[in-house]
Amino acid sequence: MPLTLNANFHDPEKRPIRDFSPGDDFYEMLIDAHRDLSAEQSAKFNAKLILLLANHIGDLVVLREAIARAGETA
């Protein structure tokens, strides 16, 4: 399965009224998780988060593509 690049955030516990809501919910959760962390703590937090999500994905084809995309400069 290729890397999903279309909007994919969703909440199985509630049907969103606005299409942007699940993504905004996630973004707020993410920024809140970093509140009160130092720069170093934030970097470590991000590292752990990436490792957790990478393991969840598991598929190296997908992960290889994600790593390539993240390295691209706009």
């Binding site: 955030f9 400069t73 706009a74």
Partner: peptide
């Protein structure tokens, strides 16, 4: 600082990827 990094990362990804445009 980290909030700005995420914000700018979303904006950079948004140019090519639909999921980031939604964010």
């Amino acid at each position: 600082g980290i909030s700005r990094i995420f914000r700018d990362a979303v904006l950079e990804l948004a140019e090519r990827h639909a999921f980031a445009r939604r964010l």
